[in-house]
């Protein structure tokens, strides 16, 4: 699993990359009450705002960590936004990206580096 500075995790699944937010991010956000997901078959570029998360405190965005095509979204989050707090690193994945070259993931942090970042 890889981690971004924006507190997203990236997990390789075949030739897709599954994206979610870290436990640290979920804790910081507080109770999530609304999730808006992108359309599938959308081409996204690194840094695009692709999801909206609203917690009891504030709204925030999930940015596309890399270029790719959205091939799947986790509809369960729309029906049960609280899943983001319950299981952020597992069941509460947000979307899956199809990328041309998985080596783009090399630029991101591994778990030890991420733990160091959040202290």
């Amino acid at each position: 699993m890889k981690f971004t500075k924006e507190h997203e995790w990236l997990r390789v699944e075949g030739d897709h990359v599954v994206v979610g937010i870290t436990e640290h991010a979920a804790t910081q956000l507080g109770d999530v009450v609304f999730v808006e997901l992108p359309e599938t078959e959308t081409q996204v570029a690194e840094g695009d705002e692709v999801c909206v998360i609203e917690s009891v405190k504030a709204a925030s965005d999930i940015l596309a960590p890399i270029d790719g095509e959205i091939v799947a979204v986790n509809q369960k989050l729309v029906d049960n936004p609280g899943l983001v707090n319950e299981d952020p690193m597992g069941a509460a994945w947000f979307f899956k990206l199809k990328v041309n070259d998985l080596s783009v993931l090399d630029q991101f942090m591994d778990e030890d580096e991420y733990q160091e970042l959040i202290g």
């Binding site: 507080g30 109770d31 009450v33 009891v56 405190k57 707090n85």
Partner: peptide, 11 residues
């Protein structure tokens, strides 16, 4: 602003 239970449970 909140305790460990969080805003939703406290409410």
């Amino acid at each position: 602003v909140q305790y460990p239970d969080g805003v939703l449970k406290e409410h």
